[in-house]
Simulated scan of single mutants.
Amino acid sequence: MANGEALKVDRIYVTYKFTGEDPKSIADVIRAEQTIEFPYELAPSWIQEEVVGKVEEISSSDKTSHLITISYNPDVTGGELNQFLNVLWGNVSLFPNVKIVGLKLPDSFLAKFSGPRFGISGLRKLLGAETRPLVSTALKPMGSYAQTLAEMARTLALAGFDLIKDDHSLANQPWATWKERVTLISRAVKEANAVTGGKSVYAPSLNLPFDQIVDAAHTAKDLGAGALLILPGITGFDSLRKIASDDSIALPIQGHPAMLGSLITSKAEGISHGIVLGTLMRLAGADITIFPNIGGRFAFSSDHCLDITELSREKLGKLNPMFVAPAGGMNLGRIPEMIKMYGNDSALLIGGALSRGNLADNAARMCELVRAY
């Protein structure tokens, strides 16, 4: 902080990038808006002191570019994820030219969350992958019948894939209803593992109505699924936290970025890539965070991708670090550079490109390439 002052470890620190004039005024608006949403001068003095956020530092690079750091008493979150997200980005999300670029969380707050159940070391043990990157894919396209998807999954498991997930868009469509799809694919992967002695797992998408999600997670486990795919931008980060922390489910979870793009891609508004797809995914309990790799179908830069990677692995209280899964239009030729960029603690995800030609041959080639590194 200013003058080298150390952070008080029992507060939540949020750094906002503000593009405009008069940063002091916007800082005062934010600190009250994100807590009491009430005129500061009308609040009792103890609320002004204990509840309203405190402006810790304002630094300016020019007249219209400022970094504002505000700290919050963790009690304003109630120790719950939904209210934490509300404090982080609730009403300020309605302000123009404000973006969250920094977040520091105290251990007292982090201790309220379980985070990734497996994390990097736990997933390695579960999948029998001691040091190498994980081999991952998505079952596509929507419109395929459940039996067709199951045979694709069988081929991939026979090739030695670690993780075979539903495409995030697979829900409960008539061509492959959710329960039929999960039943057939889980069975196919189990049968393939019996042949190879492998440990491939299938992760069905919990892209379902909110009141069905927890029951579906239990059903998926009962049907033989070995992991889950959750879309917190659609079903909520707290749905991810609920399922990840449920000891009666206890399956690895992949977090998908669907519908989170508008939260992160603007240069002037939103929240940084790393905080959303790194810190928040991890806080909620994802073991793997999926995001678009540089050079794919989406406009993520190398800095964005490395920011996500850093926050997925850095010390965060006692929460396990998680795997990163760069994806989005990748092909076999990108494997060496992806491993070089992300290291071995990555789950390399190639989907549709595996179907260009013979699926079995491409799947075997991908496994060979990854294991060679």
Rank of each mutant, 00 (worst) to 15 (best):
N3V: 05
D10W: 15
I26G: 14
V29D: 12
V29C: 11
R31H: 05
E33Q: 07
E33V: 01
P39V: 04
S45V: 09
V51I: 06
V52K: 04
E56Y: 02
S59D: 13
S60P: 11
L67Q: 01
T77I: 11
L94K: 15
K104V: 07
K104D: 12
F113Q: 10
G122L: 10
L123D: 03
E130Q: 09
E130R: 04
T131A: 15
R132K: 06
V135K: 09
K140I: 00
A153Y: 14
R154W: 08
L156R: 09
A157D: 08
F161I: 01
F161S: 13
I164K: 04
K165Y: 13
K165P: 00
D166E: 09
L170H: 10
A171V: 00
W178K: 01
T183C: 02
A188D: 04
A194I: 01
S200G: 10
L206D: 15
N207T: 03
Q212I: 00
A216T: 06
T219R: 06
L223H: 09
L223V: 08
G224C: 04
G226N: 14
G226Q: 13
S248I: 00
I249Q: 03
P252Q: 07
H256A: 10
M259W: 15
S262V: 05
I264C: 07
T265R: 13
T265H: 12
S266M: 04
S272E: 06
S272W: 00
L280H: 08
S301G: 05
K318W: 11
Y342M: 04
G343W: 03
A347M: 12
L349I: 05
S355L: 10
S355E: 07
D361T: 00
A363E: 08
R365E: 14
M366Y: 00
L369A: 05
A372K: 15
